[in-house]
C-alpha cells in the first residue's frame, strides 16, 4: 500500500526546545493508524506537523519531511496547505465546543465546508449536509441542521464536527482524541461510526487516542510515542499479541480487563519526562523494568520487527 500521509524522520522544535525527535510514520487510504502514548508524549504535535499547523503555535519542523500524497508539505505555499486542510485533510479535535461557532446554526457550519472545498451551491451543500448527518446516525437531521450548538448534547456536537471533517470529501482524517470528552456509551458509538465510515469511503484515518482498547478495537496499525520519539510501530494484531517495547506492554497493562486479578493493575511508575529534561539514552529508562547500563547511556536504534519497527535495546520476542 502506498502511503497517503508520510512522515519521514520528522523533528519538531518550539523555540529552542526540541519536542519531537525523528518521528517516521505513514497512513494509507482505507487504513486506520492509532497514535498512542501518555499525555505529553507528542501525539498532538505530530498531528500539527502532519497538517502543517506548527507555525500556529510557534513551532517548526527542524529535520525530515512531511509528504501528503507524494508532495512535500514544506514545498507548498501556505495557501495550498490551507486548501488541503478542511478539504483533502479533515480534522476532528478533542473538544467539539472549540470547533463549532456558537452563534451559527449547525447546518450552515457544515454547509460551508462543501461550498468552500467542493464548490457546491447552497442547495447541493445542504443536501450533502443532511446526507452526512444521516450517515452519522443523527436522528431528525433536518431539525438538527436548524439547531444552535448549545441545543445539542456533547455526543451530538462531536458528530457534527465529524460531519464537518467529512464534508470536504477528505482523503485523510486526523482525529485528536475525538471521544475523550464524551460519555462511554457515546464514545463507543462514535468510534464505531468513524471506523465504519473510513472503511466504506476508503479514507485514511490517523486516530490519536490514549486508550489501547480503542486501538485494539478499530485500528489496523499502531504507533506508540514516548518522550517525543517513536517507541514502536506496526500492525495491531502482532503488537498486541507480543509487544516488543516495554512501554507498549506497560500501556496495555494499564487497562483493567475482565478477569484480571486484584492487584494486577500496577500502572507505570514515575511520570512522563518534561521536554526540558529528557533522560539520557532511552528516554523511557527511568520507568523501565528492563533498563540496563546500555539503555541509560545510548539512544536505542530503530530496528525492523515483523512488518513494523521498534526502538529498544532489549525488545520482547515475536509471538
Amino acid at each position: 500500500m502506498t502511503a497517503l500521509l508520510d512522515l519521514q524522520s520528522v523533528s519538531v522544535s518550539i523555540g529552542k526546545v526540541a519536542l519531537l525527535d525523528g518521528i517516521s510514520l505513514s497512513v494509507a487510504r482505507g487504513q486506520i493508524l492509532g497514535l498512542v502514548g501518555e499525555s505529553g508524549s507528542g501525539k498532538s504535535l505530530t498531528a500539527m506537523a502532519a497538517m502543517g499547523l506548527l507555525p500556529l503555535i510557534g513551532g517548526r519542523v527542524t529535520q525530515g519531511a512531511v509528504r501528503f500524497d507524494g508532495q512535500d508539505m514544506a514545498a507548498m505555499t501556505e495557501a495550498e496547505r490551507r486548501k488541503l486542510r478542511g478539504g483533502r485533510i479533515g480534522f476532528v479535535t478533542q473538544n467539539p465546543m472549540t470547533a463549532l461557532d456558537p452563534v451559527q446554526r449547525i447546518g450552515e457550519q457544515v454547509d460551508v465546508v462543501s461550498r468552500l472545498h467542493l464548490g457546491l451551491d447552497r442547495k447541493a451543500a445542504r443536501a450533502r449536509t443532511l446526507d452526512l448527518l444521516t450517515q452519522l446516525r443523527i436522528p431528525e437531521a433536518a431539525a438538527v441542521a436548524e439547531a444552535w450548538p448549545h441545543q445539542l448534547s456533547g455526543g451530538m456536537k462531536q458528530r457534527i464536527v465529524i460531519a464537518m471533517a467529512l464534508a470536504g470529501e477528505p482523503d485523510l482524517i486526523i482525529a485528536d482524541e475525538p471521544t475523550t470528552a464524551l460519555d462511554v456509551t457515546v464514545q463507543a458509538q462514535i468510534i464505531q461510526i468513524l471506523g465504519n465510515l473510513v472503511r466504506e469511503k476508503g479514507v485514511a484515518l490517523m486516530l490519536i487516542t490514549h486508550d489501547m482498547g480503542v486501538v485494539a478495537q478499530i485500528c489496523d496499525r499502531v504507533a506508540v510515542l514516548y518522550g517525543g520519539r517513536l517507541a514502536e510501530e506496526g500492525a495491531v494484531a502482532p503488537i498486541f499479541a507480543a509487544p516488543a517495547h516495554p512501554y507498549t506492554s506497560a500501556l496495555i497493562g494499564c487497562i483493567p480487563q475482565e478477569g484480571m486479578a486484584k492487584g494486577a493493575l500496577r500502572g507505570i511508575p514515575g511520570a512522563v519526562p518534561s521536554a526540558l529534561a529528557f533522560p539520557t539514552g532511552c528516554r523511557f529508562h527511568p520507568r523501565c523494568d528492563r533498563a540496563s547500563e546500555l539503555c541509560r547511556s545510548t539512544v536505542p536504534p530503530t530496528d525492523p520487527r515483523g512488518d513494523g519497527r521498534v526502538a529498544c535495546h532489549h525488545p520482547g520476542a515475536l509471538a
Partner: peptide, 12 residues
C-alpha cells in the same frame, strides 16, 4: 459493558 473495549484485537 459493551462500550468498554478490551485491549485485545482478537476480541473485536
Amino acid at each position: 459493558m459493551q462500550s468498554n473495549f478490551a485491549p485485545d484485537p482478537a476480541r473485536r
